[in-house]
Design a protein around this nucleic acid. Sequence first.
DNA 1: CTAGGGTTAG
Length: 604
Amino acid sequence: MMIPKLHRLSCIKELEQAQAFIVKAGFYNHIPIITKLIAFSSLSPLGSLPHACALFQETSMDDSFICNTMIRAYSNTVFPLKALLIYNRMQRMDVDSDHFTYNFVLRACARAIKCTEMDDQCFGHHIISRKGSEIHARILKLGFDQDHHVQNSLLLVYSGSGLVGFARLIFNEMTVKTAVSWNIMMSAYNRVHDYKSADVLLESMPQTNAVSWNTLLARYIRLNNLVAARKVFEEMPERDVVSWNSIISGYVNVKDYKGALDLFHSMKQWNIRATEVTFISILGACAELGALEIGKKIHDSLKEKHYRIEGYLGNAIVDMYAKCGELGLALEVFNEMEMKPVSCWNAMIMGLAVHGHCERALEMFDSMKAEDGDHKPNRITFIALLIACSHKGLLAEGRHFFSLMVTKYKIMPDLKHYGCMIDLLSRWGFLEEAYVMIKTCPFSSCSVLWRTLLGGCRLHRHVELGEESFRKLAELEPGKDGDYVLLSNIYAEEERWDDVERLRKEMINYGVCKKAGSSHNSRRHGEEEKGLRWTLKSWALFSKFLIYNFQSVRGAQPTAFVTNCFFMGFSCFPLEPNTNIAFVCQNHMEMNPICPKSVKLSLA
DNA sequence: CTAGGGTTAG
């Protein structure tokens, strides 16, 4: 019989075969063997953490080496808290801990802090920081504080908590400072924006390596300063995958998705092998561009390489499919994921919501609650749910979710939540209620809310509230072309032509320029429209578009349409040459498949 | 065994 070589497994299937063999041969209680199985399943990108977890639970869970392996595995996932749970169990069960344990558990803390930061949970952030200090105390008690790996991890935790002072104290007292220590210390200063100290450190380092330069690169990327980042990237003495990943994520951050894809291609030419992180960034770019083909190709190649589609990676794929409108494929990947982070549920709910499957989005929320585990809904979950309600006019459900998030989940609604709520109310005709809500909420001076209400007033022909919202907008953020158009539409529908004319004159007097465009184009195609100018062709397209629109909005009042033309016609011509209408028109006319969320013109 | 790069928002 073939004896499987545990150190040379190439996928989870082979692992299962090996495992069957081991059981059959009666070695299932053999600690070194089971350790190898767990190590492979949990640490290899081809393994499966849930599988490791199942194996782990079948042991007596009292072996330090195995516990360490599990902690290490979890410390690098979307569920770093699970590592802390295993650590707590170890303490409870009196399992011996060693310097490895502390190294890994501290790294889990550092990551957990990072995760809570992403989620804006200052509460959780605080608690985990305290857990870090608790572990530190234990380290001192047991005398592991002289181990330089443990010291480095302590630096990580304190730098994550923003306690640079503490980090520096540990750093100063370290007898062995490796390049790792210097780099962590430097990124700690970067994190609290103390760039001077970071630079001093970089200058005085005994030797720099790729990581040092990557740390500097990450600083500029976090500041969205792509020019400086690019300069560092080009001039750094050594470059590795992480440098590439950083610069790619920089392009994604500033929404230059094409730039990111170009870099991804030139990376191949330099013979740099893409990593999971590369794919995550690139999949994000595909999602925003609606570039389904590229995204699918990446997914296929990952499957071919037997990558485990979990955590961040699974999330990115689900989100890519959902944004591209391939909800079936998204669901398929989603269902195959064994450990779903909240973000993944959110991506799925959001995908269903924006593509009109609102009831299914709400059902998803129910199954999210039903599934045992620790995925609690967060602020984004509720944004997604409210969007779903808004699309279908589910008033009662919307109100229910809005109060549920406060009472049950203790999430304070932010501007976005109010935005969704106002959208829901005013879109479905509850204008007075929306008005009261804006007036009484903490964001009553935010123009977006008033603009949403104004849109609702136009839809439901409510002149008084429309005028009131417009007055508010003129006060808060004067000179917005779209606001004039909306109010003028309201007047036009009531055939109040004098008011329309008055508004148009006012607009010209204030020098407000009508910028036609979609709700997405400026964000989505930041670079692309720059080269486009107003040519005869674009005007031709534009007028074709107007006619097309006129014909397609059969139910709408022609008067409103006529006013739009009127507005556009008079105030569009003197626009600067770089306007993006041409691009929008082309997009709309050709129903460009690259654009998943359909481009809506404000005049439609 | 270590640092640097990564997710969701009308």
